[in-house]
Design a protein around this nucleic acid. Structure first.
Lengths: 316, 316
DNA sequence: CAGCTTCATAGCAAAATGCTATACAAGCGG
DNA sequence: CCGCTTGTATAGCATTTTGCTATGAAGCTG
């Protein structure tokens, strides 16, 4: 007994509107069209849906039950339309963002919160990815956006990279670290403390190698590795260990005053943090909106950093 | 942006089945039909619903969202079909029963419970009505069944009355009542105790008038009136008051041992308790089932009463 | 009971839906 | 890397459904 969904909707409209004519008007149809639909539905069901010969149009119990289903169909249909409209305006839907762990934890997660204060109906699905997986995820349409530091020539065809922050690493330590008392640091000062190694596969890992070479030491004393940003900061705060971190990540934590910048010049990577996405990919207005939000947020952040550096002697 | 509900359902089926051909099969359609539907939906939406050129058919985020709505439409449609089937078999739906208060409280409410142990998907809406309102309610299709005591010629055309129990009233009192010690009761014994009057408008009220006349007294000492069955029984149990009650109602309470029958012959009304319904009315299989259940329950009750009367000296 | 409102029916045009046959494209194995 | 398999899109056609306007029929109301 397969019923016509359109008929169920019309039945619901008629019962809700209190009459065939009104129900038809509610649906933007004419009264005869709806009248016939009701007849066809009744014929298919084989039971009366209305009490005959009653002017204030009275439905039977079965009529009410079918109308209830019709109502849910109507609302489902409306929700579908809303989803489309919301998608096109970028005010509804799902945005899947992949990103390198430290930046996601330090900055992007906050920005997701800010963004959703503006667009509460956009869902964000975050995942932790480094560059190779991110490219694969973008190509496989698993994510719309990637937050990743990337070298100038690393991006292949079909990808678009929007720079949001120049790459700049620093050596981080706890605020009361002994080395902060030194007037002028030398390379061997750094090697005399334990180091935190970033997550394997992360860009910071290769940066650490580079620093190693610039210091001229073949290996550092690495006693902790693999932690997320919160783990690393907690660890740094408790020990005299050092870590290579993006400056912006440390900056974002300045209010907590648990880590600071050790004034020692290290070689900078030729990379920029940015948003990676496919150019030929599907339109995803909500993702574009989110990307725009992230971009302007970082724009503001750059100004704040500049003001901060002009105002206080920080990390130098 | 009005979307075609049928298309949404087909989208859902395709995503659930994992392919156009499988989805089409699931809906009992051919692959080209569904393929075209998807194209039409996509054209209407104006956004891709599938990632092009992927063999394990991958939907876009928007595609998933629309499919979700399609799924709810499918389930609503299925529920509607189930409602029809259940209605025809009498295993689903709503049965609205009106009845005189004391019988509903004493007997029918229990039977509703028994019935729903067999048919858990049938909802019963009970209402308290006396004969005039009941006829109106049946005519206005507010109820399917009426439980009412009725005289032989009271029913008009278009109504069907199924007798379930002959009317038989008794005088009820508490088990320890002083009158129960009397070997042979006389009319003036009865008038020396206070009486409970039934709900105004109920058949029992006219029965009480009849008894009044037979006793030859113009008025009884009525000190309590208007209570439901539970109120009346509670009142009788606490006092030496007397009340006119249907025998079956008192019998149904025999286990509680709070009221009993005073062995005094009173004039019997020319009425029977039965089920009243319209003959020309709509088919309502669930109501028919319920009526059948009530009928057989009373059938059993009659036998129980007979056995009881043969076994014990009860109220005489 | 006359008039008003509302629903049902008739007839027709247009759109949608379904089918079969066939072309096309993405994976996959040799 | 080429052909094969599998699954999807397109074409063409018949049928059904849907919508409309015009008009008849039936309840309610004063």
């Amino acid at each position: 007994m397969k019923l016509n969904e359109r008929h169920l909707m019309q039945l619901a409209a008629v019962l809700d509107a209190g009459g065939v004519s009104e129900g038809a008007a509610m649906l933007g149809l004419t009264q005869p069209a709806v009248s016939r639909s009701l007849n066809m539905l009744e014929a298919r069901v084989g039971e009366p849906l209305f009490v005959k010969g009653r002017r204030p149009l009275q439905a039977t119990q079965l009529g009410f039950q079918l109308a209830a289903q019709g109502r849910t169909i109507i609302t489902a249909s409306r929700k579908a339309s809303d989803a489309v409209q919301g998608f096109m305006k970028g005010t509804k839907g799902v945005v899947r963002v992949g990103g390198v762990p430290f930046f996601m934890d330090a900055m992007i997660s906050r920005m997701i919160g800010e963004f959703q204060n503006l667009e509460p109906e956009v869902t964000v699905q975050q995942s932790y990815l480094n560059l190779p997986e991110m490219v694969a995820a973008l190509e496989g349409n698993q994510i719309e956006l990637g937050i990743v530091p990337i070298g100038v020539l690393d991006l292949g065809p079909g990808f678009e990279f929007t720079e949001i922050l120049p790459g700049r690493n620093i050596v981080a330590c706890r605020p009361g670290h002994p080395l902060l008392r030194n007037r002028r640091l030398r390379a061997h000062d750094l090697t005399s403390f334990p180091w935190v190694a970033p997550l394997p596969g992360s860009p910071l890992m290769s940066d650490l190698q580079m620093i190693l070479m610039s210091i001229g030491m073949s290996d550092l004393n690495i006693r902790y590795s693999g932690g997320s940003l919160m783990s690393v900061i907690n660890y740094l705060a408790e020990t005299d260990a050092l870590a290579v971190l993006p400056f912006s990540v440390v900056f974002a934590q300045r209010k907590e005053n648990r880590v600071t910048v050790l004034p020692y010049e290290i070689p900078q990577p030729n990379r920029s943090l940015g948003i990676l996405r496919r150019v030929g990919g599907l339109r995803a207005p909500a993702a574009e909106r989110f990307a725009a939000h992230v971009t302007t947020s970082f724009e503001n952040l750059r100004h704040i950093i500049k003001r901060h550096e002009n105002a206080v002697v920080w990390g130098r």
